[in-house]
Every structure is written in structure tokens, then in C-alpha cells.
Design a protein around this nucleic acid. Structure first.
Length: 497
RNA sequence: GCCGCCAUCGUCUAGCCUGGUUUAGGACGUAGCCCUCUCAAGGCUAUGGCACGGGUUCAAAUCCCGUUGGCGGUACCA
């Protein structure tokens, strides 16, 4: 039978557990799912896997949604957030939050129990612990000893009324095989797999059960997730078989690594997408960079718009080997994106950083001009305030760099230059860039001075710094009054006899 | 320990499937030079890699086997 059927729409999901922030690795998984869905005109679903009550984090779902919105990964079904920050769910398979689906998992657990593919386990945590330790001591693989597997149905039913229990799935001794788009054929020996717990004592499902049940119910066609799931996939495959459900296509993406090659984690520094937002990375840059981890085109193209990504993304161009998350390259890419940004957009992104530095946004056009003259050197949005703040200092309260003073505001010659420049500029009515450049360059020529001998002292006098935008941009944007005033103050402060 | 996955410059990767077109290409980083009023940006150049050992073949980065190494999993976590 030909299984390629254009009527079968592709449905994929991103199913994070809400930990309080979106992990970069999670972002990558979400992105690949998203790209795959859009490329194939399929649906992309967000599902919250919050079946571990001990890990409950207040506001985690809200946080996840807002960061997904920020990076621009749109999903079609799942929990959404309205303007007031309230969660609502959209899609015909709601709810999409697993803690709200407990009856469903209970029902399917009962079915498995009924069919004899699962059994109740009454072992205490202590016993389990003891057994595991013994096995380790004997250098045996730690595995549940199936102590409760052969309790009769009758006895189990009776015990269930008085004792807490978990439900475990029966793992057969045969090999379990499955096909993975990025790994190819994968085989696991059944004898080595634990009788996995499906339902915990608290009646919450474990990941394995909830995941399989929901993927089936939500008609997920492709399971695209991180490689850390590869070794539990045989359990999932088995569950599909036990239920008699069609097995989705699996694609396990290579892991993202710390520079020391361990699985990307907090100890490597920032792993929360939020952290990158806070630093002043652009969402476009983050998406572009992350798309390159574990995926590439034939020509190793570096820059992609989201549309291009959607157009070009295919799972068979995903790599099988893990990728180190290189912050340096991300930083470079962010700089590239900032440089290419429209001013209006850049201003929009820069707003919170300016506000934070107490730079007034009143005169928007002026700030945009300031950003424009520094745009090519900005790598992170958070650098912007520091780069432009001296435009707003009171003239008599500029922070002068000490070395700059020593170097450029100390000699008699430098003093004379500034005195003369002051006179020239004072009489200049036309303070535009071209004109200023003409005047000052003429001044250099007439007095047989190198441009650097003139430009540097002037720059330091009006800005306090040796670095900054081109001198004439600087003068124009400062304006005549400030320029004259600051020269006067510098002369008085540093160059009086 | 056991099971699984992976293996091209320091890092991300192209090439591998369908062996010869490869003196292994690109990007980040690093270094140098050019441009230049500074810092950047830009341009140019350099740097640096097929983990190892066996096969197969006229020919292997490409196919096979083994070794080594890295990582993941081995939870009433996801």
C-alpha cells in the first residue's frame, strides 16, 4: 500500500515540561518542529507536559508562551495567553495541559491492565531502592525485578483497595525495532528494558504514558524531539502496539552541548532564552543561529529569514552528531542582524534598554540618529545606552577618560588647536556635517596639522572619549551650543596654564 | 557496569547515501595587512581538520569490521 497520502496532514508538537523558562535546547526542538510543520503545510501544537507535581513552577506556562511569542514561533493549537496574561486553550483536542487530562490517562491505564499488558506494582520506594543497590553491587544492570508482575488479577484487585500502587508496563523479551528519520534503524533488546512505570502512586502518568496517549489522541504524525529520548523510544513503540495504534514517525535530533561537550545545561551559563533576550539579542538572530545547530543546507548558507528557513527545512538534512552551542558565533550573528536592521525596528528593540538606563525616549528621532551613528558596532542591544549616554550629560559633568586627557588635552599645541577651533566654530552658522568637515579639514591644511592631531583633541573635548562615531556626526548631533560649551569647559578644566 | 547514539579545522558545518570532479569547501574565532579621525564595519591573506587500526577496491573522508574517545539513557524526572 502506498502510504504517501496528501490528505494526511502532518501534525507535530512541541511538548515541554514547564520548568520556569525556555531552554535553548527546547527552543531548537520547538523551532525544528515549527519549521517542519510550516514547510509541509501541517499543524504545530504546543502541549504542556506537567505530570511531575514535585516540579511545579508558578507562572511557568505563561513564561513559556510569552517567550515563544517573543521569538516568533507560532503554534496552531494549545494553550495561548490573552492580553491580560490569562491562559486559554484553542484546538479540538483541548485541554493541551496534561495535568488537566488525568482521567484520560487513567482510562488508558485501565485498558492496558485489562489487556494484561500492564500490572499493578505494590513495591515500596524503599524496596525498589534496596533492589537497585543490590544489583549495582553485583554489577548487574539496575532493573526492576518484576516482583509484582505475577500477582494474580484477583489478588491485585484486592490489594489495590488497601495499598498504594503504581502501574507498570510489561516489557517482552524480544528485540524492539523502529525507524528514525535521522538515525535510521534502531534496535533495543527487550530483556534490558525496565518494566516502566506508567502511572504513579499519585495517579499522575509518567512521561511515557502521557506522551504516547496524547500523541495518538492529538493525531501527531511525527515525533521530533531531542536525542535524550532515543533510549525510551522502544517503550513508546511498545505502547503503541499494545494499544493497537499507528506508530508515528520518529526523528531524534542531536543534542546541544556545552563547550565542554556535556549536555547543554545551566552550568555553562545562559541557557534560558530569556537570558538572551535580556542581554539584547534579537529574536531573528537567535532563531537563525539555532537553526544552524544540527541542520544545514548543501551550500552551508549562514543567513536565513524565517520564510527561507521554512522553505528550505527538511529533516533529512539534520545532522546526527551533537553540536556545541557557540555563544561567540551567536554574538557575531546578532551584530550582523543589528547592522542590517531598519532603524525603526532597532529603536523598538532598544527601547527597554534605554528606559532601563533612564534615557528619555521623548525625542525619538534624535535617539534614532544616535543609534544610527553607532549601529555598525553594536553587538548587543544592552550596549546602546553606554554608547550614547554622553550626549545627554550636562556639559559640565562629562566623564572624561583619564588617559584620553593625558594624551589629547595636555599640551600647549593641543590647547591652541582647541582655542582656534572654538573661534572658528563660534562664527559658523551652518552646522551641518559637510560644512563642518570642510572647515575643519581646511583648518588642518592651513596650519599644516595632521588630521589626527586635530580630530582627537576635539573629540575628547566634546565627548570625554577617544572612541565614538565619526567626528562630524558627533559634532552635528551634539549641536553647536554643546560643542562650544564643552570645548570651553575642557579648556578651563584641563588646559589652563 | 550495561544499553544506545555519535565521530571532517578550537567551534558550527559542506562533501559521505550514489567511492575518482577534493591540493577536503564555507562560516565563527584567532593572527597579519589594507582602508581610516578613534572604535567598529568592510576588503585581502594566513591559521587549522577527515580519531586510530584493519579490510574491500585500480581508487576511500566517502563502503565494511574492529578499537578508542565523547555523549545520552539506565527514576513513582521530563
Amino acid at each position: 500500500m502506498n502510504t504517501i497520502n496528501s490528505k494526511t496532514t502532518i501534525r507535530v508538537r512541541f511538548a515541554p515540561s514547564p520548568t520556569g523558562y525556555l531552554h535553548i535546547g527546547g527552543l531548537r526542538t520547538a523551532l525544528f518542529n515549527y519549521l517542519f510543520a510550516r514547510h509541509n503545510n501541517g499543524s504545530f501544537i504546543l502541549r504542556i507536559e506537567d505530570t511531575d507535581r514535585t516540579r511545579y513552577v508558578e507562572g511557568a506556562v505563561e513564561n513559556l508562551i510569552s517567550i515563544l511569542n517573543w521569538v516568533g514561533i507560532e503554534y496552531d493549537e494549545g494553550p495561548f495567553m490573552d492580553n491580560s496574561g490569562k491562559i486559554f486553550q484553542k484546538g479540538s483536542f483541548a485541554p493541551y495541559i496534561q495535568s488537566q487530562r488525568l482521567e484520560i490517562y487513567q482510562k488508558y491505564t485501565d485498558e492496558l491492565l485489562e489487556k494484561g499488558y500492564a500490572y499493578r506494582c505494590f513495591c515500596s520506594a524503599e524496596r525498589l531502592d534496596f533492589v537497585r543497590k543490590q544489583q549495582m553491587l553485583n554489577k548487574q544492570p539496575p532493573k526492576y525485578d518484576r516482583f509484582c508482575r505475577n500477582i494474580s488479577k484477583k489478588e491485585s484487585d484486592i490489594l489495590a483497595k488497601e495499598k498504594p500502587f503504581t502501574v507498570r508496563m510489561k516489557i517482552p523479551d524480544e528485540d524492539i525495532k523502529f525507524e528514525d528519520i535521522v538515525r535510521g534503524k534502531v534496535v533495543f533488546q527487550g530483556t534490558l528494558i525496565d518494566d516502566q512505570i506508567l502511572l504513579k502512586t499519585d495517579k499522575f502518568p509518567t512521561y511515557h504514558l502521557a506522551n504516547v496517549v496524547d500523541d495518538h489522541l492529538m493525531e501527531i504524525t511525527h515525533v521530533i524531539r531531542g536525542e535524550e529520548w532515543l533510549s525510551s523510544t522502544p517503550k513508546h513503540v511498545l505502547l503503541y502496539q499494545y494499544f493497537g495504534w499507528e506508530i508515528p514517525t520518529f526523528a531524534h535530533l542531536p543534542l546541544l552541548l556545552n563547550p565542554d561537550k556535556s549536555k547543554l545545561s545551566k552550568r555553562s551559563g545562559d541557557v534560558a532564552v530569556e537570558d538572551y533576550k535580556r542581554e539584547g539579542y534579537l529574536p531573528e538572530a537567535i532563531l537563525n543561529y539555532v537553526s544552524l545547530l544540527g541542520w544545514s543546507t548543501e551550500n552551508s548558507q549562514q543567513f536565513f529569514t524565517k520564510e527561507e528557513l521554512i522553505e528550505k527545512f527538511t529533516l533529512n538534512r539534520c545532522s546526527q552528531s551533537p553540536a556545541v552551542f557557540d555563544k561567540q558565533k551567536l554574538l557575531w550573528m546578532n551584530g550582523e542582524y543589528i547592522r542590517k536592521s531598519e532603524l525603526e525596528k532597532l529603536f523598538f528593540y532598544a527601547k527597554p534598554f534605554l528606559e532601563c538606563a533612564k534615557i528619555s525616549l521623548q525625542n525619538k528621532d534624535y535617539i534614532k540618529q544616535l543609534i544610527a551613528i553607532e549601529q555598525e558596532k553594536i553587538k548587543l542591544l544592552k550596549e546602546i545606552p553606554e554608547l550614547i549616554e554622553y550626549f545627554f550629560y550636562p556639559d559640565d559633568n562629562i566623564k572624561y577618560n583619564e588617559q584620553a586627557i593625558k594624551k589629547f588635552l595636555s599640551t600647549e599645541k593641543q590647547k591652541q588647536i582647541l582655542v582656534q577651533l572654538f573661534e572658528i566654530l563660534k562664527n559658523e552658522q551652518n552646522f551641518d556635517k559637510l560644512n563642518l568637515e570642510n572647515i575643519i579639514r581646511n583648518f588642518c591644511e592651513k596650519n599644516d596639522l595632521k588630521t589626527s592631531e586635530v580630530f582627537h583633541p576635539l573629540r575628547v573635548a566634546v565627548s570625554g572619549r577617544t572612541q565614538g562615531p565619526g567626528l562630524f556626526d558627533l559634532l552635528v548631533l551634539l549641536g553647536k551650543d554643546k560643542v562650544l560649551n564643552r570645548i570651553k569647559i575642557s579648556l578651563k578644566k584641563f588646559l589652563k596654564e
